[in-house]
Design a binder for these strands. Sequence first.
DNA 1: CGGCATCCTTTTGGATACTG
DNA 2: CAGTATCCAAAAGGATGCCG
Lengths: 128, 128
Amino acid sequence: MCNPQRFHVDCPSRKLFDQIADKWSMMILTVLDSGPMRFNAIRRQLEGITQKALTQTLRRLERNGLVEREVIATSPVAVQYSVTELGCQLKGPFKALYKWTVDNLDEVERARAAFDQRIEEEEERLRA
Amino acid sequence: MCNPQRFHVDCPSRKLFDQIADKWSMMILTVLDSGPMRFNAIRRQLEGITQKALTQTLRRLERNGLVEREVIATSPVAVQYSVTELGCQLKGPFKALYKWTVDNLDEVERARAAFDQRIEEEEERLRA
DNA sequence: CGGCATCCTTTTGGATACTG
DNA sequence: CAGTATCCAAAAGGATGCCG
């Protein structure tokens, strides 16, 4: 990043950041961590993803050199995806994020309850 | 995460992950790292964000207990946002992500060039 | 099996105007 | 200043059908 305190839209690393800082990219890379996997196998792991989104995200990951796509010419064809060395380096930060969500879920839920109650009270006050 | 290898849509930590794994959240938290900041100050740092998106993201961050919102009753009012202790713990993983984009930009761009050329060649082959 | 193409719906984004 | 409300355009998401 050009300057960690200032994010310019046309900064190349900012643009790259925009491309990798999304949940599907992170989840795909995490899932592929356990080894090469085929298209539909990945899909089954990522509940809620559509084939369209999976295809798009895999393409972007491939283009950015984070995953490798290998076509195995059987019939019908099999396509295997695996994490590259470059993509491997991203796993650390991603896993730290996952871990955070697990470790802090309770505290977040307390915060939510408190927030929602503040809103509730606020609305109550306005109606009165 | 219920199981790091399998992401269920209704898993609470997966849902939480969906809420924090977006670029604006990450950038806001990073920008606020240097200290409390007012609405428009944050906005100026985050080139490309709209007021709508900033408001929404700040609300979500506040609801999840990651940032604190303080209204200072001057005239006109000032509103200060700051990172909570909880939000502070997320900075590590986020910064690791930023660092990765900077460190690996060159390699990613080489990968992109290679990918784009493969596509180009493929299309060439099809036209022939 | 692993896609791409199409169509349609829903969400998001941006611009503008207004308010305490 | 820090928003909310509104409206329109643009993008993303989902369903379906087809193909090598």
